[in-house]
Amino acid sequence: MTPRKTFLEALVAMLTPRDVLVSCLGANARYLPHLAVPAPCIALCDSMGAAIPLALGMALQRPDRHVIALEGDGSLMMSPNVLATVAAARPENLTALLWVNRHYESSGGQALPAAPVDWVGLARGLGLTHVEPVPDVATLHAAFPRARDARSPALLVLDVAFDPHEEIPPYSERPDEIRARFTVA
């Protein structure tokens, strides 16, 4: 399986200044300030499950920008209903990446409820039509441009390695600092 940071670096390398990035809380939010993200970026440090609906609001407000949401499987497990909301709203400019590592990594690495969730099947069942499993970086390199060009909301389901010893940097920015810097021109 692919390490989180490898996926994240590959994604960031594909972003452009015309994109907008919304990250869920946890490891992705903690890594992002250390990467050269070329797009406006807002990273959450709380509020599990808010990344995709936050991105949806942005996508509907700004159809001229492509909005990318990063969400964890622990967060989406709490609120899978949002996928039906996205499917109903049908934004053409929203791509969500679901990071499936089967653990609540930011709260100490506890395992999620031990159910073999079929995220691709669930997303399709809730009405999303552009859903792709992403087992590795090579697939991400092909799948992300397809998602961006899909003219429909897209979900990429990333199979992410869980490493309980991964040294994830701490949060380095406060929410008010993140908010003050975030603008979508």
Partner: peptide, 21 residues
């Protein structure tokens, strides 16, 4: 925007505001 649960509505509204609406 019709949503499935109220927490989504809050985040969607916030997203619109953060994006200039």
């Amino acid at each position: 925007v019709d949503v499935a649960r109220e927490e989504e509505a809050v985040a969607i509204a916030c997203g619109a505001s953060l994006a200039g609406g």
